[in-house]
Amino acid sequence: MIFPGATVRVTNVDDTYYRFEGLVQRVSDGKAAVLFENGNWDKLVTFRLSELEAVK
């Protein structure tokens, strides 16, 4: 189960963010908004829950 605050990895091989890890900001309607941070940039991207896996 994916909840806000969880760290997730993108599993969709066709996505630009494949294998990126980010922090879930919100979850609704089968989608999750994931925040990616890297140095001087932040990006908030929405994914279907089926495209994400929780990082242990």
Results as ranks from 00 to 15, higher is better:
residue 1 M to N: 12
residue 1 M to T: 11
residue 1 M to V: 09
residue 1 M to F: 11
residue 2 I to K: 02
residue 2 I to P: 03
residue 2 I to Y: 04
residue 3 F to Y: 12
residue 3 F to S: 09
residue 3 F to K: 11
residue 3 F to V: 13
residue 3 F to D: 04
residue 3 F to N: 06
residue 3 F to E: 10
residue 3 F to H: 10
residue 4 P to Y: 05
residue 4 P to S: 06
residue 4 P to E: 09
residue 4 P to H: 05
residue 4 P to D: 04
residue 5 G to E: 02
residue 5 G to W: 03
residue 5 G to T: 03
residue 5 G to N: 04
residue 5 G to P: 01
residue 6 A to M: 14
residue 6 A to Q: 13
residue 6 A to I: 12
residue 6 A to T: 12
residue 6 A to S: 10
residue 7 T to C: 10
residue 7 T to Y: 12
residue 7 T to R: 14
residue 8 V to S: 00
residue 8 V to Q: 00
residue 8 V to N: 01
residue 9 R to K: 08
residue 9 R to T: 07
residue 9 R to Q: 07
residue 9 R to H: 05
residue 10 V to F: 01
residue 11 T to Y: 03
residue 11 T to I: 14
residue 12 N to T: 08
residue 13 V to L: 07
residue 13 V to Y: 07
residue 13 V to P: 15
residue 13 V to S: 10
residue 13 V to A: 11
residue 14 D to M: 11
residue 14 D to R: 10
residue 14 D to G: 09
residue 14 D to W: 10
residue 14 D to T: 11
residue 15 D to V: 06
residue 15 D to R: 08
residue 15 D to T: 11
residue 15 D to W: 03
residue 15 D to A: 10
residue 16 T to G: 08
residue 17 Y to W: 13
residue 17 Y to V: 01
residue 17 Y to E: 02
residue 17 Y to P: 01
residue 17 Y to D: 02
residue 18 Y to M: 02
residue 18 Y to K: 02
residue 18 Y to V: 02
residue 18 Y to Q: 01
residue 18 Y to S: 03
residue 19 R to F: 08
residue 19 R to W: 09
residue 19 R to V: 03
residue 19 R to T: 10
residue 19 R to N: 15
residue 20 F to D: 04
residue 20 F to H: 10
residue 20 F to M: 15
residue 20 F to S: 08
residue 20 F to A: 09
residue 20 F to G: 04
residue 21 E to F: 08
residue 21 E to L: 12
residue 22 G to K: 01
residue 22 G to S: 01
residue 22 G to Y: 02
residue 22 G to N: 00
residue 23 L to K: 13
residue 23 L to P: 02
residue 23 L to G: 02
residue 24 V to L: 03
residue 24 V to Y: 00
residue 24 V to Q: 00
residue 24 V to M: 01
residue 24 V to P: 00
residue 25 Q to E: 07
residue 25 Q to A: 09
residue 25 Q to R: 07
residue 25 Q to V: 15
residue 26 R to A: 14
residue 26 R to S: 15
residue 27 V to H: 01
residue 27 V to K: 02
residue 27 V to E: 02
residue 27 V to A: 03
residue 28 S to L: 09
residue 28 S to I: 10
residue 28 S to N: 09
residue 29 D to T: 05
residue 29 D to A: 09
residue 30 G to M: 05
residue 30 G to R: 04
residue 30 G to D: 08
residue 31 K to C: 11
residue 31 K to F: 14
residue 31 K to A: 09
residue 31 K to V: 13
residue 31 K to M: 14
residue 32 A to D: 00
residue 32 A to P: 01
residue 32 A to H: 01
residue 32 A to W: 02
residue 32 A to Q: 01
residue 33 A to M: 14
residue 33 A to R: 06
residue 33 A to Y: 15
residue 33 A to Q: 14
residue 34 V to Y: 01
residue 34 V to T: 01
residue 34 V to G: 01
residue 34 V to A: 00
residue 34 V to W: 02
residue 34 V to P: 01
residue 34 V to M: 01
residue 34 V to C: 03
residue 35 L to N: 04
residue 35 L to H: 07
residue 35 L to M: 09
residue 35 L to A: 07
residue 35 L to K: 08
residue 35 L to T: 05
residue 36 F to C: 03
residue 36 F to V: 04
residue 36 F to N: 00
residue 37 E to I: 14
residue 37 E to W: 12
residue 37 E to V: 14
residue 37 E to D: 10
residue 38 N to H: 13
residue 38 N to R: 11
residue 38 N to P: 08
residue 38 N to K: 11
residue 38 N to Q: 12
residue 39 G to F: 08
residue 39 G to H: 10
residue 40 N to Q: 12
residue 40 N to W: 08
residue 40 N to M: 11
residue 40 N to I: 10
residue 41 W to H: 10
residue 41 W to Y: 10
residue 42 D to R: 15
residue 42 D to E: 15
residue 42 D to S: 15
residue 42 D to V: 15
residue 42 D to P: 13
residue 43 K to C: 13
residue 43 K to Q: 11
residue 43 K to V: 14
residue 43 K to T: 12
residue 43 K to D: 09
residue 44 L to K: 04
residue 44 L to Y: 06
residue 44 L to A: 07
residue 44 L to V: 14
residue 44 L to H: 05
residue 44 L to D: 03
residue 44 L to G: 03
residue 45 V to N: 03
residue 45 V to T: 04
residue 45 V to S: 03
residue 45 V to E: 05
residue 46 T to N: 08
residue 46 T to Q: 08
residue 47 F to Y: 14
residue 47 F to W: 01
residue 47 F to P: 00
residue 47 F to T: 00
residue 48 R to G: 10
residue 48 R to M: 13
residue 48 R to C: 11
residue 49 L to N: 03
residue 49 L to D: 03
residue 49 L to E: 04
residue 49 L to I: 10
residue 50 S to V: 08
residue 50 S to T: 11
residue 50 S to Y: 08
residue 51 E to L: 04
residue 51 E to F: 06
residue 52 L to E: 01
residue 52 L to D: 00
residue 53 E to S: 06
residue 53 E to Y: 05
residue 53 E to G: 04
residue 54 A to R: 09
residue 54 A to G: 06
residue 54 A to P: 13
residue 55 V to D: 03
residue 55 V to A: 05
residue 56 K to E: 13
residue 56 K to P: 14
